[in-house]
Design a protein around this nucleic acid. Structure first.
Lengths: 181, 181
DNA sequence: AGAATAATCGGAGCAGTGCTCCGAATATAT
DNA sequence: ATATATTCGGAGCACTGCTCCGATTATTCT
């Protein structure tokens, strides 16, 4: 990678973080390029799709979440592990406003740049869920996809002004529905 | 209202129903006007905002839902009433793909054409919830807004291809969390 | 009936979007 | 210093929501 290319890449990423923090996941890509003092073509070469850009912004968060799932699976009780991980997961997805629809869509689209991260996270959650189910402390009629859907829905509520303030409480309610004791 | 105006109004509404069924709530309004063989200005005069158009499409459904809530409040047990109404409510909101974000936003914006309908529905749900709470069969730490949020989130899941098939089941899970026995 | 009027129509126009494409600029290798 | 391969940047296309206003037409009045 050429030196100037890397410079632009890094600068774009940093600028994108700001712009996305302000305007959410549907932020204008033109705006990102403008504020990074870079041509639109440059942005699109480094990040061919919006998903690619968002993936670059979220990759570290997502990796931490899957790592944390595995760690919790060893150090905490099945119930605690699920509770904590669900909370962190929702918090992670709430990092970027408006990303939940993209994540859910990416689940079914192998071409999406977000696909891999999402599938990995779903699997990590599924392991925690299975552990709790084996112990008898989680509903049997749920799978990893269901858990992911619930996380997405709760993160979605956290994004909306009308429901953001209650999202935390609703997370508790839903968690209590997943757990059987 | 002039005769030609009424003709266009009705025709626009019918066309909008088709287009929205195909492309969801973010359908191109230009497209609606085109397919109705009507100028763009005509569409915007009859329906100044997208919300106004969607409200016209959903008004009857919403009215039926609030009516049904009141009826269920008299004829069914608190538990049954809530269960049935939640199901119908989600089904109603799933009628138009992508309308849930608009509904949630409308809750907080008195200017929105959808505001009135949404507030009325929330109130209807709140009454059913309160009845169940009085009987001790619903969680005490929920209010009408929470119920509305949960309905919205479930309808949202019903809209997404990745989760649509499990939305029905997740509705059961959430319902069981709202009800305490 | 014919004319005056007021309501309605329809689309040009503006500012914005995502995305592509390619000539110009430039970093790197020779 | 020259040649080459990469990278740059923005013009351009097709679309969007939305406004505005001259032309058209239904209705009313004489």
């Amino acid at each position: 990678m050429r030196a100037d290319a890397k410079k632009n890449f890094d600068h774009l990423l940093a600028t994108a973080r700001d712009v996305v923090a302000e305007h959410g996941a549907d932020a204008s890509l033109r705006d990102v390029a403008r504020r990074a003092d870079v041509g639109l073509g440059t942005l699109y070469r480094h990040f061919p799709t919006r998903e690619a850009l968002l993936d670059a912004l979220l990759r570290s968060t997502f990796d931490e979440l899957t790592a944390k799932a595995d760690e919790l699976g060893k150090t905490s009780s099945p119930t605690d592990a699920l509770t904590i991980w669900l909370r962190d997961c929702v918090a992670g997805a709430t990092q970027i406003r408006g990303i939940t629809p993209l994540m859910m869509t990416a689940m079914e689209d192998p071409e999406s740049a977000l696909h891999a991260s999402c599938v990995t996270m779903r699997a990590a959650g599924a392991r925690l869920l299975a552990r709790a189910q084996d112990e008898g402390s989680a509903r049997e009629d749920l799978d990893g996809g269901d858990l992911f859907a619930l996380v997405g829905a709760l993160a979605w509520l956290g994004d909306l002004p009308a429901t953001a303030s209650r999202a935390g409480h609703l997370l508790e309610v839903v968690t209590s529905a997943v757990l059987t004791r």
